[in-house]
Design a protein around this nucleic acid. Structure first.
Lengths: 162, 162
DNA sequence: TACAATACGTCAGCCTTGTTGACATTCCAA
DNA sequence: TTGGAATGTCAACAAGGCTGACGTATTGTA
């Protein structure tokens, strides 16, 4: 099936199908955490912040900004509520006191768990349904689809991973 | 490379990497059309509406609603501006006068071209970089990630495709 | 030691795009 | 023929992006 390298492989129709698949899949991808968050006063923006703080504990605000690709005003609104509700802790930097290092509290970690469990379950199910070879391809295409600087971010994370 | 079927294949770490890849890739995926739309008074919602009207000319508002997964009020606002600016035409149904059948005008089609050209270019580049086998896997995983009803929508479209 | 640059927070106001609620029109079936 | 269901429109509100301007603490440098 995949040995093809057929010439028809890159028809507009094929590519358009890929575009729509991306659209529908992304909806599924966010659906489960969205449902959990809807019950609280939080949204997808909070989820993203929590995810990356969990991912890189002690990260600075500036750091998070460049990963999330939003303005500091926008991120600040989210962080403010997360800090106020005791999900995130902001510690003044020891070396550079201008910096704020972000950590999840226990309560924050537990929400992170719930959210990522839901999302991981779906991702895991999709992986299992498609099989290991498909997953490799999936990751290759996604990575090729990123912007240059995001790919760098992403690859950097991979190195630090585990 | 893909013969692996390794047991480590579904570690949390692997799955989490997939989640982040999806997040970053989706940003790249929408970046190019977003740039075009930013110059006009339109946003991503307009793009989606235009895409699917182009895809299924004569579709009704209700139909579009279930594809896009938003409320009719939300879609209506977008359609209203598109109709007012002469990109979309809304024709009263002949059999059922409650329905509105949607079509792109010439101007609408030309914007659709610009937008999908930009998005297709990136998708095509990603496909080319990853190779045909990867694309098959990519599509398999995406399809497995969709909600049930969305997968039906999607597969239905495939049948009608070409 | 002054001064510029950096990191962060905040206020104000805008836009897009989602939501719910209320309502008009049209169709259909009892 | 009348009431309920379906389709679509208008209004108002909220989340979460954005820009711009400004304040404060800290750091690094001329």
């Amino acid at each position: 099936m995949e040995g093809g390298q057929t010439l028809l492989f890159l028809t507009d129709e094929q590519v358009r199908k890929g575009i729509e698949a991306m659209f529908f899949a992304y909806r599924g991808f966010t659906a489960d955490p969205d449902r959990i968050l809807a019950d609280m006063a939080y949204g997808r923006a909070h989820h993203r912040a929590i995810h990356f703080i969990h991912r890189s504990p002690g990260t600075t605000v500036n750091n998070l900004l460049s990963i999330l690709g939003v303005t500091k005003q926008s991120l600040n609104r989210v962080l403010r509520t997360l800090i106020a509700e005791g999900l995130v802790e902001s510690r003044i930097g020891r070396r550079d006191k201008r910096e704020r290092h972000l950590h999840l509290t226990d309560e924050g970690s537990s929400l992170e768990q719930r959210l990522s469990d839901a999302q991981r379950d779906r991702m895991r199910a999709a992986y299992r349904a498609a099989g290991p070879a498909a997953v490799v391809g999936f990751r290759q295409v996604l990575e090729a689809m990123m912007d240059e600087d995001m790919r760098r971010q992403f690859d950097g994370m991979r190195d630090r991973g585990q």
